[in-house]
């Protein structure tokens, strides 16, 4: 286990390094922030002073080395726009996005697993067909449209739920969280559901396919031949076998939601990281973009590691590399 973790850590370092280079060059290629940041009325001397202050006068490779050197000390640069450390800027917004993504993923599991299980166990019942047909909608309806419809129905027509913002928050360890207050939860409900819709459909389909496949296995028939109750066969013998694909996909989806829930955050004016990155791209705020992408890379590496560890818990045949 230790050897496995060490090796993964080294690999992660390599991935981060390569990503940082790609991101740095990529962001550099998008455009020159000077044009946007410095007022057009500024004269040549002011421009040059500003460019020098931002460190944009150095050649690209020097800029990159400076960035790397600072990054090693935990400094991912200062935002051109807010004049605050980029990292701090992102971490401030992170709880909002994190709780939204967690809420959505939780909803996907709580709703998706039982429905998928039912559809897998009774594939020919009308209810199952209904579930599967609805899941296609979950896949194909565009997020922004569903978000707008949710606001139309639940905020405008029925007036049950607030349409924008995070609502009341509670401060824990210096960060603000919505999910601990009633008002915050009410604010979270619609955006989380909106994000969850696609994931619910995904979990339903994965679970159903897994159940259908596993039910045909000899060990399920053998379990029945042992005289076990149907619930024991389903929830112990079948369920544990279908969790592996579900864990994989839900893990990756979770990362994706944290990184790219831009649309939902915009529709519901949720002050998360997604809105920050879009705003930053608009004004070519390079340090924020780079820092953001670096954090996302780290996030995915961490999630993949957790997924791998979960595998070894779920399936005894999976041995983590290096654990002889």
């Amino acid at each position: 286990m230790t050897v496995f973790l060490l090796r993964r850590l080294l690999q992660a370092g390599g991935v981060v390094l390569v990503m940082s280079l790609l991101v740095f060059v990529g962001v550099f290629a998008i455009g020159d922030p000077v044009e946007i940041l410095i007022s057009p009325e500024a004269d040549q001397i002011e421009r040059e002073r500003a460019v020098k202050a931002l460190g944009l006068d150095l050649p690209l490779w020097q800029q990159y080395l400076v960035f790397l050197g600072k990054a090693l000390q935990g400094d991912l640069g200062r935002s051109f726009v807010f004049n605050e450390p980029a990292l701090q800027l992102i971490l401030q917004r992170m709880p909002a996005t994190l709780e939204l993504a967690l809420g959505a993923t939780l909803a996907a599991l709580v709703i998706g697993l039982p429905l998928g299980l039912y559809a897998g166990l009774r594939p020919h019942s009308p209810v199952s067909r209904g579930i599967m047909a609805t899941s296609i909608l979950g896949f194909s309806l565009p997020t922004f449209w569903v978000g707008l419809m949710l606001i139309m129905v639940f905020a405008v027509q029925l007036g049950w739920l607030p349409s924008t913002g995070r609502g009341e928050t509670v401060e824990i360890l210096g960060t603000r969280w919505s999910f601990l207050t009633r008002d915050g939860l009410a604010h979270m409900a619609m955006p989380a559901l909106n994000l969850a819709l696609f994931k619910i459909s995904l979990v339903i389909r994965l679970t159903r396919a897994g159940v259908r496949e596993t039910m045909l296995m000899d060990y399920v028939k053998f379990a029945r031949a042992k005289g076990l109750s149907p619930s024991r066969v389903t929830f112990v013998h079948v369920f544990k076998n279908i969790l592996i694909p579900v864990v994989t996909v839900v893990g990756l989806e979770f990362g994706g939601t944290i990184a790219f829930s831009v649309v939902t955050e915009s529709v519901f004016a949720w002050p998360g990281m997604g809105k920050l990155i879009i705003d930053s791209i608009n004004v070519l705020d390079r340090p924020v973009m780079v820092a953001y992408l670096m954090i996302i890379v780290l996030l995915f590496i961490t999630i993949n590691l957790l997924v791998d560890i979960t595998y070894s818990v779920l399936d005894p045949r999976v041995r983590l590399e290096g654990k002889s």
Partner: peptide, 8 residues
Amino acid sequence: MTLNPVLR
């Protein structure tokens, strides 16, 4: 195939 692979 008769024993469940994920249960002891």
